[in-house]
């Protein structure tokens, strides 16, 4: 990062202050989301051994499948970062491509997850089977819900930029979205570790 100072007029300063304020507020909201997931993790930690005669993690987790999911989400976090670089360089076309790839990878992740869920339900291992399965579906499912909201948000943003160009508040919202998307990848690291890796070891 170079250190040249940039001159701004008062309207731009106000815009920047507004963006900073919103970014801080959104970061604060993300911290509350951390606590939300923490409670789900705590619940999972307390209940994961209560399989009530049903299957535990080792029986139902398909590790190579989960690794693919993890790589998809991680890559989408990377392409989201590339999108933010394109925003600051004002490269609209590169931005839209990066956003589209992020969306595609996120959608692929979500589809794999839904497929895995469906498989479990069809086999009779749904969330009503045991406390372990309730907490598994809820923890992983809440993350999936967040991903769904993120994809919807991304699609809406992408459409707005496509139609109206790269206005200041679009830049601000992309910044917020990227915080959200990176945050979801971080939560996934812990799901991957605590639920899946610890489940099979």
């Amino acid at each position: 990062m170079n250190n040249e100072a940039v001159a701004l007029n008062s309207a731009e300063i106000l815009e920047q202050e507004n963006t900073n304020k919103t970014m801080f507020g959104f970061w604060l909201y993300l911290m509350t989301d951390c606590v939300l997931f923490a409670v789900l993790f705590a619940t999972y930690a307390v209940l994961h051994k209560n399989t009530f005669g049903g299957p535990g993690g080792a029986e139902i987790f398909n590790m190579p499948y989960i690794l693919v999911e993890t790589m998809l989400l991680l890559t989408s976090s990377f392409t989201c970062g590339l999108a933010m670089l394109a925003v600051h360089k004002k490269q609209r076309k590169a931005l839209l491509i990066a956003l589209a790839i992020t969306f595609g990878l996120g959608l692929a992740f979500l589809s794999m997850e839904l497929f895995e869920f469906r498989h479990l339900v069809v086999e009779g291992n749904s969330w009503t089977r045991s406390a372990f399965l309730s907490s598994y579906f809820t923890l992983v499912g809440t993350h999936g819900l967040h991903i769904t909201v993120g994809l919807f948000w991304l699609a809406t943003l992408g459409y707005q930029i496509f139609k109206n160009g790269l206005k200041q508040h679009a830049v601000k919202r992309l910044g917020l979205f990227s915080l959200f998307w990176h945050f979801l990848d971080i939560i996934w690291i812990f799901i991957f570790t605590v639920v899946y890796l610890m489940g099979v070891s």
């Binding site: 619940t43 307390v46 209940l47 209560n50 399989t51 009530f52 969330w127 009503t128 089977r129 045991s130 406390a131 372990f132 309730s134 907490s135 579906f137 809820t138």
Partner: peptide
């Protein structure tokens, strides 16, 4: 679901 039920492993 069975988070807090008295059976099926809830607590």
């Amino acid at each position: 679901m069975h988070f807090f039920t008295s059976t099926f492993g809830g607590n």
